[in-house]
Amino acid sequence: MTAVVAAVGISRRYGPVTALAELSLAVAPGQILGVTGPSGVGKSTLLRLLAGLERPDTGHVAYAGEPAWAGRGVRYPRPGYVMPVFQNPTASLNPRWPIWRSLTEPLTAPGRERPGRARRRHLAAEWLARAHLDHIDPDTRPGALSGGQCQRVAVLRALVARPALIVADEPTARQDVITAAATSQLIAAATAAGTAAAVVVSHDRAWLAGLAHQIVDLA
């Protein structure tokens, strides 16, 4: 089986600071890889490199066996191949948009079905219901939601894209245990079908232990 994402000897420096020393890893479909370690060891840098948000200084990243940085920019096998979940849930949703719009934005990418407005609201409500969030009105703006609710919407937004790889950077750092549990359930359910893989960074080892199939300690 081809790895969803493979990294060979990747490293990254910011000026004189080495953010990530050489590292290699591969994640197979359906797998959840946990990444932990003290602050400043390059957990977030690793995620940004795996997500193709930054180009590694050395080494290669490959998606489904194809090199990610072939030409000038990053190349994904398809739109929404990698989807992110961030530490700050409120900032990861557009504050001006009702959540149905953020939630279904991945569907409007080129080559996707590009549903109309009414259809998008309907789909958003469906996704919310699937995550037991049917009490949230799809027309709400992120400012009116709690951080925990925003985080669950942000995870759902990632899932709507039907990603091959979910990268989550400290998704529970500012959340209470209930939100953290809901987040890990959503990620686990998405990978259980075998279509998606996930790389999850967290400093909460106990929480990670309950979610990941394998844990890398970047100490």
Partner: peptide
């Protein structure tokens, strides 16, 4: 049930919001 245990038992969430 939602609180992680050291032994890695999967956590269970609670539907809905306060």
């Amino acid at each position: 049930a939602a609180t992680p245990r050291p032994d890695g038992t999967p956590v269970r969430g609670l539907p809905g919001s306060p």
